[in-house]
Computed example of a mutant assay.
Amino acid sequence: MKLGFIGTGNMASAIMGGIISNNVIPADEIIGADLFAPGRERVQKQFGIHVTDSNIEVAQKAEVIILSVKPQFYADVIKEIAGEIKDSQIIITIAPGKTLAWLEEQFGKQVKIVRTMPNTPAMVGAGMTAASPNAYLSEEEISYVKTLLESFSRVEIIPERLMDVVVSTSGSSPAYVFMMIEAMADAAVSGGMPRPQAYQFAAQAVLGSAKMVLDTGKHPGELKDMVCSPAGTTIEAVRVLEERGFRSAIIEAMKVCEEISKNM
């Protein structure tokens, strides 16, 4: 098998879907392990991959293994599979707070590891993923891992010291954006708009604004100024947001998120 998953939850499903739909690896070359029978049966039915209840079977069969279990289960899973991992295999992790040094210590030997941090928009093929490989991967292997990740996400190779910043900037930030969309929709409903329509207007505005930042390359402040006509409606809304500490609240929330990630 070319690719194995230990854990078949939402993030694993997003990764499987991207890899299979983009013809990076065929379904019959992918195996997923999950102790929860409905979970593994779901991905088998949805994607046509091989499934098992044995983590060791994945470790024995897969060339690349993605550890897609909750961070609190990493130590137990690694202890279970460490003896089966060969020098040629690559381990990809998606757990915040689990450093390369900690992961290598858990395996107790030299293992090729790529620490990554994807985010939930990967579930709709619009994710953002940071990746930090350890010293044992070749450039060719890093390129291969990047190809896997790019099937469901934009990817940046970063120094590991920035990984906790990534957690706050893209890993957790969808929650902040969802809160903003919800608040915008609530305001629209207050103004008389039906709620389904309110979500559509608010979400599309966020999607389009993000696309403008990425596609134009313009500074977000410049794009904001383009919307703010003199004595207009938007500049007054911006004034109120500044008065209420909008930017400061976001910055402070992200700093707390970063600190929590460092201490996980």
Rank of each mutant, 00 (worst) to 15 (best):
M11D: 09
A12L: 13
G17W: 05
G17N: 15
I20A: 00
I20Y: 00
N23R: 15
V24T: 12
V24P: 00
I25L: 02
A27Y: 08
E29N: 14
G32M: 10
R42F: 08
F47W: 07
D53P: 01
I56S: 08
V58I: 03
K61S: 12
A62P: 06
A62L: 07
V64F: 06
I66R: 03
P71M: 11
F73M: 15
Y74I: 15
D76Y: 08
E80Y: 02
S88C: 08
Q89C: 12
I91L: 10
T93I: 13
T93E: 11
I94P: 09
P96L: 10
K98Q: 15
K98I: 15
L100K: 11
W102R: 13
E105D: 14
G108R: 11
G108N: 09
K109Y: 04
V111Q: 08
M117I: 12
T120W: 01
T120D: 00
A122R: 00
G125D: 08
A130H: 06
S132C: 15
N134C: 05
L137A: 05
L137Y: 10
E139I: 09
Y144G: 01
S153Q: 11
R154K: 12
E156N: 11
L162Y: 13
M163H: 02
V166G: 04
S168F: 04
T169G: 03
S170D: 02
S173I: 04
S173H: 05
M179T: 11
E182D: 15
A183N: 09
S190H: 05
S190G: 14
G191T: 02
A205F: 01
L207P: 07
A210T: 04
K211W: 10
M212I: 02
V213L: 14
T216R: 01
K218H: 06
H219N: 15
G221R: 10
M226T: 06
P230N: 00
A231P: 02
A231K: 14
G232P: 01
I235Y: 00
E236D: 09
E236P: 02
E242N: 03
E242S: 02
E242W: 07
F246S: 10
R247F: 07
I250P: 05
I250N: 09
E252S: 14
A253H: 06
M254K: 09
K255I: 13
K262R: 15
K262N: 11
